[in-house]
Design a protein around this nucleic acid. Structure first.
Length: 488
RNA sequence: CGGGGCGUGGCGCAGUCCGGUUAGCGCACCUGCUUUGGGAGCAGGGGGCCGCAGGUUCGAAUCCUGCCGCCCCGACCA
């Protein structure tokens, strides 16, 4: 047993890190808080990125690229915004190194001090709005629908692979519109795109909702969120979409002439998802044997393992199947590495979360079958060789569907309506998950509850129904329930 | 930034209290043979500034001083 991972119920946090490392997704790096995304982990990100990019294009967006560095003064333009990010910015103060006159190595050249410091982008609103000012004059220039794929840096105190790292990869959409309504619709549209992506591709159901004033993005009028539930009962914010109103347009003086030849500030949105989605994927589906990948995002969807050694006839069948499945757009790996034994390969591909494993040996050949093992249920069956090309595509779909159903059932089972403070506390500590409860709508109460229980308001669900009730903590009147949870 | 823990071949550790030959073990790696239907066995082999810098000593992985780094937990956050 070369690679053991810590069981979930023993130490969930350790389990997560073990999977990330042992499935080959990422490594720690020489830089504190930053990770190396390894080829297998990056392949998952590429699949996510390609699919999302397609969905952005389908909704009319184009890609562009803005600078990594932002002049410090830009961040002072929008007061709320700077307050949200000031504490976690990396700052460039010099532009040159020199040999250390007192010894070996290099030192920062004191003569190379920048006149104005540059901030490594924590997000790009400011540099983008500065640029948009030049791009927008008329209503005919609108809407402006731009996305960028980039890295950003937020100097977090505590990091965890994929879930929170100092540098991370993401996409950020930044749009400008003629009317408030159009911008709001855009924020809602992208919110929906994210939710659909999570369900259809990650097989991870999410709750769509709005953030409270306290939790929303610095500088936004409204923040929409998708909230997912992890296996340990904690919530994870998987993506956000913001209606920014005219806040940035005013801060960066971005105006357009409308049809009546009157100047107006434009209306804005921004929206993003990050490599955190990989962390979400891991914590949603994986088990004590390793990673479990939804077929639609698996870098290898099917692996064929020969038993015991590749022989001519086994090779022939394996190649036939590989080509047949490839022709149907399925990614197949035929692993004929004879320095590793089948048992080792089984464990290895389970660790890596490959959805379907085909094993073929002399015994199977004699019976005209092949062994099919699915990663999600660990079920093994024998399928006639002449049916395998039809069977595997169906099975992949079934696995994708099963993962979604399974996760949705777990999620639905972990949304608990609570109506008393005692119940709130006991359900939170014993069961976890989302607590649907009445809240008086004040930041003070929200903060008090967080202080007492560590639970925060994850969102006000979009599909919330109006019902009168009393705040779980203060007993003040309330018109609808909100979702509380402990969160990542 | 607080509270814990840890730095010894690629990885995981023992050795440190009580200084004493060539610094050891498991995994991984290389070679060979036998194996191969759930993480193979045997034999041989390669690989170490013991985190860094000073100091004490005949002698330091071990004792002293200073520094650096990492991990876990908490407050902040996608």
């Amino acid at each position: 047993m070369a690679k053991q991972i810590t069981p979930r119920d023993e130490d969930y946090s350790r389990w997560y890190i073990d999977i990330v490392k042992k499935a080959g997704l990422a490594d720690n790096s020489a830089v504190r808080g930053c990770m190396v995304i390894k080829p297998y982990g990056y392949a998952i990100w590429e699949k996510m990125r390609d699919q999302l990019d397609l969905m952005f294009k389908e909704t009319g967006h184009v890609n562009a690229y803005f600078p990594l560095f932002i002049p410090k003064s830009f961040l002072s333009r929008e007061a709320e915004h700077v307050e949200g990010f000031a504490k976690e910015c990396a700052v460039v103060t010099h532009h040159r190194l020199m040999n250390d006159p007192h010894g070996s190595g290099v030192v920062v050249d004191p003569d190379a001090k920048l006149e104005e410091e540059l901030i490594v982008r924590p997000t790009s609103e400011t540099i983008i709005w500065h640029t948009y000012k030049d791009w927008i004059q008329s209503y005919r220039d609108l809407p402006l629908l731009i996305n960028q794929w980039a890295n950003v840096v937020r100097w977090e105190m505590r990091t965890r692979p994929f879930l929170r790292t100092t540098e991370f990869l993401w996409q950020e959409g930044h749009t400008a519109h003629t009317t408030s309504q159009e911008a709001e619709e855009e924020a809602e549209r992208m919110h929906e795109v994210y939710a659909r992506f999570c369900e259809d591709f990650i097989a991870m159901p999410v709750i769509k909702g709005a953030k409270t004033d306290n939790e929303k993005f610095a500088g936004a009028i409204e923040t929409y969120t998708i909230e997912a539930l992890m296996q340990d009962g904690k919530a994870l914010q998987a993506g956000t979409s913001h209606f920014l109103g005219q806040n940035f347009a005013k801060a960066f003086d971005v105006k357009f002439l409308n049809k009546e030849n009157k100047e107006e500030h434009v209306w804005a949105t921004s929206w993003g998802v990050t490599t955190r989605l990989i962390g979400a994927l891991v914590m949603t589906h994986s088990d004590d044997e390793g990673l479990v990948l939804p077929p639609k995002l698996a870098p290898i969807q099917v692996v064929i393992v020969p038993i015991p050694k590749p022989g001519d006839e086994i090779d022939e069948q394996a190649e036939r199947i590989r080509k047949g499945l490839s022709a149907k757009g399925i990614t197949v790996k035929y692993d004929r590495d004879d320095t590793k034994r089948p048992g080792f390969k089984f464990a290895e591909y389970e660790m890596k979360g490959v959805p379907v494993r085909l094993a073929i040996g002399k015994r199977d050949l004699a019976n005209g079958v092949i062994e099919v093992a699915r990663r999600d249920t660990k079920e093994k069956t024998s399928i006639p060789l002449d049916q395998i090309l039809e069977h595997v595509p169906q099975l992949l779909e079934e696995i994708q569907e099963n993962l979604l159903q399974r996760t949705r059932a777990y999620r639905d089972d972990h949304i608990t309506e609570v109506d008393s403070w005692e119940e709130f506390q006991s359900v939170l500590s014993d069961k976890g998950g989302f607590l649907s409860a009445h809240w008086d709508g004040t930041v003070a109460t929200e903060k008090k509850i967080k202080e007492l229980t560590k639970a925060t308001i994850r969102c006000i669900p979009l599909d919330v129904k109006q019902e009168s009730g009393k705040c779980i903590y203060t007993g003040e009147p309330s018109t609808r329930r909100v979702l509380f949870a402990k969160a990542y």
